[in-house]
Design a binder for these strands. Sequence first.
DNA 1: TTGATGATGACAGAGATA
DNA 2: TATCTCTGTCATCATCAA
Length: 672
Amino acid sequence: MNYRLKLILIRADNRSIVISLCLSVALSTQSNPFPSLPPSLPPPRSSGSIGGAERVGRESCPLAASDWVSDDSDGSSVDLSWLNDQDQKDDDKPSLPLIQAPSNQAIQDGAEASTSSLMRYFLDMGFSQELVAKAIKENDDGDSASILEVLLTYKMLEENPSVNEGNQENTPSDDNDWGDGDSSDIDDFDDMDFELEMSGQASFRKKLRTLEEMGFSRDAASSAIKRCGEDVPIFELADSICAAEAAEKEGGVWDYDTLNSDKKKEGDKYDPFAHDNKRRRCDGASSHRRSSTQMRERLKRAYHRPATTSRRCGGDGDMVGELDSLNLPNPMVGFGLPTDPGRQLYRDIPKEAQGPPYFFYENVALTPKGVWSTISRFLYGIQPEFVDSKYFSAANRKRGYVHNLPIANRFCLEPIAPKMILDAFPLARVHWPAWDTRTQFNCLQTCIGSAQLTERIRAKLVESDDPPPPDVIRWIMYECRKWNLTWVGQNRVAPLEPDEYEFLLGFPRDHTRGVSRTERYKSLGNSFQVDTVAYLLSALKDLYPNGIRVLSLFSGIGGAEVALHRLGIKMTAVLSVEVSPINRTILKSWWEQTGQVGELVEVDDVQRVDDAVLERFIARHGGFDLVIGGSPCNNFAGSNRHHRDGLSGDHSSLFYHYFRILDVVRRLMARL
DNA sequence: TTGATGATGACAGAGATA
DNA sequence: TATCTCTGTCATCATCAA
């Protein structure tokens, strides 16, 4: 008999089991950092009725609603037919017997359906059925993020068995934690008393074993868990051990406790995703931020060591730990500007991340804390390259790029775009007042200043002297910077026109013409800055003189395609995924107007890009050379007043589909 | 129904200052 | 070193008019 079952039997009758399950549902729903992942257990109805379990996380899982179960249009039932007998057998042990109380059929149905949704989701991500079943079995407490962590760990171990050398006794096996229990770690814990089990030793053991599987010693793993807490994700624990080892090696003192206790002073349970899930008051967070900054500096020093460190820290994956300890680079020039003689020309890429196929991921630089760290973790631990487009155009655009592209032999697009406002728009010089000292615009966004505002500015200038008093200048400059207003006449300012957006972003004139003005601003505000992206992609030109096959995710209006075209890189085939029909039309029109000879295949939903779609494309064209895209930033952007939820946001969580699809592509390509 | 408009803060980093 | 101020941010939502 296993611990879990023993625990339940001793603790309660069926009724109390039901209560404990409902509590776990509530916790799982509230703390899930991946709302796009199907929750492992059904959310209770507001009435508290157990029957709420019937609707297995469909309302709380927007991504899943139309995809997990294709033939379930009314959402009233869940298709379990894809599960084979073995899966059902695995699901039946060990968890389901605990919720098979006759009076709780709804809970049983919900748990099975939820498990099935989880299975399908992770299978869609490209993990093997065996691994998914094992991970779910080991995380039957309903935390999707934990399951994903375990899957990633197992996958890393599968692909890099050397990591686990010396720890073979703890290799993930088919032994069931809760089964007959003949594995060594089970034996190690057999003598633990019931009180320890009650106080969370199961979680401790799970973390401990995972860390051992990653190649850490049991002592180091145990110390890290005790030091950081059991709630800390595996990657955080691994980071902690790496940093501790580095500090010890340098003769320093590793003091994660200070950071951890500092976080706990806020009265919150330490949750690495907390910045994504809840907003903090500035005043309340300031002291924490300061102390955290100090600790991050120490972390930075601890991580600063040669790139030939242990693989378990990820090679370049060390950058992951370093990432959280670093502020955004200033100046934001990535690995160096084209005119910079001291620019970086080489970097280490983890072997498993080396191309081809090459990949290129983009998003806003200024995200809620921890977002880029998470993105980097999912993308092989590669350090983001942060670049501000102000070095390539007359408008700022601070973006981070995670890619495995070569960084030598980069070159700029010709003709070189003007980098000053008045060089880009010389006609504005006539009306540009001397006291407006702007030389570049701020980030071009999806919204523009109102006509009322420009009229207020005009009226204020008319009634003011020339030059206006300082307070008037101050107010006008604030509004001009905020809304990227330009001067179009005597005392008259106006928002940039859509075609001026196109010019500043490196698109051909009238690229978006033909759709509503609002849609043009929206599409352009969400697009790449072509000159910047082209510079980062330029090393591909020599690699693919005969053309390139592209998987373009979240294509938008085709910033990647335009960049490749302007670089003179022939696109022999493009699989473009874009949800907006307007954007798809824009890209299709551009594709035809520019006489592209390659094949453009457009897909409307990133969730539909599964193994079958990718296999068909690969069979037709032989594979992909580049996977490029920037997932929605809505939930990252500082200008989002309502839902700046980080990677847990409805839109920005689509990043995980980028990761999923990239993983499938690399797996399929490896078979060729 | 669609498109346009205007009101709506929070957060994080940089720099200045005590 | 701590505190304050300034700056910038691929947005969302309700409302109204056509």
